[in-house]
Design a binder for these strands. Structure first.
Length: 449
RNA sequence: GUGGAUAUAGCGUAGUUGGUUAACGCGUCAGAUUGUGGUUCUGAAGAUCGUCGGUUCGAGUCCGACUAUCCACCCCA
């Protein structure tokens, strides 16, 4: 036997036992995005390398050491997308969507790729839900994006996820702030760790979230970006905070949030979980008013976020959140003998055409193992099909939950099966359940308005 | 790129100071007299103990190297 091929480092197989979790969160994010008026966009998994160099930034770690880049037969080099925003902006521009009226609101559910050393919550192929909004400069747009993220986390059942927000200003205020930081840290140069000494020249904002105790200590009294915002940026930030208060969205202003992707301006935010290890950022995003023009479009205000799906699922697991139940089989047909098997296959097909799920034997098992199998797959009903049934034209439908059996005439099988399924749904305490369900519905609360 | 930990059936584990056929649970498959599942009982299949090398009469166990995985730094979703 030859050597087994194993999956590439940092990738994951999502097996049937877990795929339901993914379906759950994908359903949640999609329907939330659509409630907010976002529509799905799908772009290629790979793009010309230059797109990411220009958008993410040619000094960022993502671009300098984490991209999967291949050179094609021609002259271009292509890169597996390391994040979602750049491709979306490119597609919006290329297809003229920026001319179709603002705001433009799109969402996506994608794989992204970064060559990193894997650890908890960090993979080489990871999955992301993201949204982007174009053409809205108002702080209401920032608030709405954050509200969308927040309501998704709520819908997932998460409670211990903290929202941290910050404003990193426009290029002008940021330049002033960088100067202030250099002035502050320069006298401490000798005490700083090695990497921070380098950062001091290139990107002093990175010093703020250094984990080294000494640097942390020094950074404690460092100037804060929000003190250096220009009037416009400060007003924007203040307005955003007010609107979030109106929404009842709790947040912490966290001056240490400095996003690593170069394109952010003004608002940046992260939703952070403490339950899933060191990589706790479940969702991160912000405003990037300069990116569209950087990629060759008009000056268009824009903003968005990315949500890490594996991190989201991990957080849900650690909080004991519920996932959608797997749909189970409506009917299992247990044939005995070759003739019955052929009939069973046709019967299962007919049942499926009516919209129910049906299975029958495919591996030639005896009756008892088939019953076991039917139980294992959670079949709601079983119909045994043997010589007797074929002769008399009559079979029994067994309810696997109650063990109760009801006769079916084979020529009227589908009609009877549908009747039985429906009657189970509607008899007993069903009407009671419906009543209490209606009572539980909260009356819409519009008292604030 | 830098650290630390781990590696025994499909999964989860046990394996005493090195000593014969590597154990258990879950799962899988099959049986417990007539054509009916869940519980129970019985049985079966399934592991060259991550790989290579070393020490030894003898290595799952000790040593070394390599590889993989996990965790952390860094960075980010």
């Amino acid at each position: 036997m030859s050597m087994q091929i194993k999956r590439p480092k940092g990738t994951q197989d999502i097996l049937p036992a877990d795929s339901q979790k993914w379906k759950t969160v994908e359903d949640i994010v999609r329907s939330a995005a659509e409630q907010f008026g976002f529509r799905e966009i799908r772009t290629p998994v790979f793009e010309e390398t230059g797109l990411y160099v220009r958008s993410v930034g040619d000094t960022s770690d993502v671009v300098t050491k984490e991209m999967y880049t291949v050179s094609s037969k021609g002259d271009s080099t292509f890169t597996l997308r390391p994040e979602g925003t750049a491709g979306v902006v490119r597609a919006m521009l290329e297809n003229g969507l920026m001319n179709e009226g603002f705001p433009q609101k799109v969402y996506y559910v994608i794989s992204a790729f970064r060559h990193e050393k894997p650890q908890a919550g960090r993979l080489r192929e990871f999955h992301q839900f993201g949204v982007e909004m174009f053409g809205a400069a108002s702080p209401y747009a920032d608030a709405e994006i954050i509200l969308l993220a927040s309501s998704i986390l709520d819908a997932c059942g998460l409670e211990n996820v903290e929202l941290h927000i910050n404003s990193i200003g426009c290029p002008e205020c940021r330049a002033k702030y960088r100067e202030a930081l250099r002035d502050y840290f320069e006298p401490h140069r000798e005490e700083l760790c090695e990497t921070c000494r380098e950062r001091l020249g290139k990107n002093p904002m990175r010093l703020l979230d250094c984990k080294s105790p000494i640097c942390k200590e020094i950074a404690l009294n460092a100037p804060i970006i929000t003190d250096y915002l220009c009037d416009d940026c400060r007003e924007h930030f203040e307005a955003l905070k007010d609107i979030l208060d109106d929404y009842g969205v709790k947040f912490k202003v966290d001056p240490k949030i400095v996003r690593g992707l170069d394109y952010y301006t003004r608002t940046v935010f992260e939703f952070i979980s403490n339950d899933i290890g060191a990589q706790g950022t479940v969702c991160g995003g912000g405003r990037y008013d300069g990116l569209v023009s950087e990629l060759g479009g008009q000056q268009v205000p824009a903003l968005g976020f990315g949500m890490g799906l594996e991190r989201l699922i991990m957080t849900m697991e650690s909080c004991g959140c519920e996932f959608e139940a797997q749909k189970t089989c409506d009917l299992y047909i247990a044939p005995m003998g070759e003739t019955a098997r052929r009939k069973a296959a046709l019967l299962a097909d007919a049942v499926r055409r009516e919209g129910y799920s049906a299975e029958t034997d495919l591996v030639g098992r005896g009756l008892k193992p088939q019953m076991r199998y039917a139980d294992k797959i959670g079949a709601k009903y079983v119909c045994v099909l043997g010589d007797n049934e074929l002769e008399t034209g009559e079979a029994k439908l067994k309810n696997m939950r109650t063990g109760e059996e009801k006769p079916v005439v084979l020529t009227e099988f589908i009609r009877t099966f549908a009747d039985v399924l429906l009657s189970e749904l509607f008899d007993g305490d069903f009407s009671e359940q419906l009543g209490s369900l209606l009572e539980d519905l909260p009356a819409a609360d519009t008292s604030d308005v």
